[in-house]
Design a protein around this nucleic acid. Sequence first.
DNA 1: ACGAATCGTAAGTCACAGCTTACGGTAAGT
DNA 2: ACTTACCGTAAGCTGTGACTTACGATTCGT
Lengths: 105, 105
Amino acid sequence: MAYQDAITALADPTRRVIIEKLRRGPLPVGAIAAGMEVSRPAVSQHLRVLSDAGLLAVRPEGNRRLYAIAPDGVDELRRYLDTLWDDALAGFARAAEEKAKGNAK
Amino acid sequence: MAYQDAITALADPTRRVIIEKLRRGPLPVGAIAAGMEVSRPAVSQHLRVLSDAGLLAVRPEGNRRLYAIAPDGVDELRRYLDTLWDDALAGFARAAEEKAKGNAK
DNA sequence: ACGAATCGTAAGTCACAGCTTACGGTAAGT
DNA sequence: ACTTACCGTAAGCTGTGACTTACGATTCGT
């Protein structure tokens, strides 16, 4: 939904592991949970959170459910950080200006 | 330091309010805490977390301490999301390809 | 139709992150 | 020197979120 949910979702280390696993492409739940330290239901819960945040997309494939990273959700968060970066640069430049003015007196 | 700390720092709503307040430029702690629902020490703790994550920079100004958004920290997080976005797009394209192949049989 | 596989949900436990009050430390004003 | 203002840290409490086990729902295979 909003970028806040995406950030909250990415804040958990286990969920970041899931994201890293999905970088190479879509995977079913079993493959995601394989090799992880937590149980499969825990993975399911995390997948739910990531999906609600708009970071993942599901595609039922017969018996299994394929999860994949949703480019749109990532892009939303990306755009937020872009505007934040712009403001930070502007504020930084203005602060440098005022400091220069102060030193010149 | 790493992008993980930045994400964790931005996951808290109160800290996001602080970030929004600093968008227009540097502010002392008192000005940041003014109008907020939490106490000033709580704000101090959040400022510590944000600073440790590399998202904020401090500049002592006489009696007060001016906090400002650190462009470098934001940029680091931005770059992580860029690579994640690239991988998501690649995976998405490959999935579409394979699906087309499957439908063409 | 029956058993097995894959996955989501419910219920309950527990550690951790955020908040508060209280205190200490430094800089400015008089 | 004394007081005031500004800010960080310590200690303690509390709610939220992550994890587990147990169960139910689909879907595939035979």
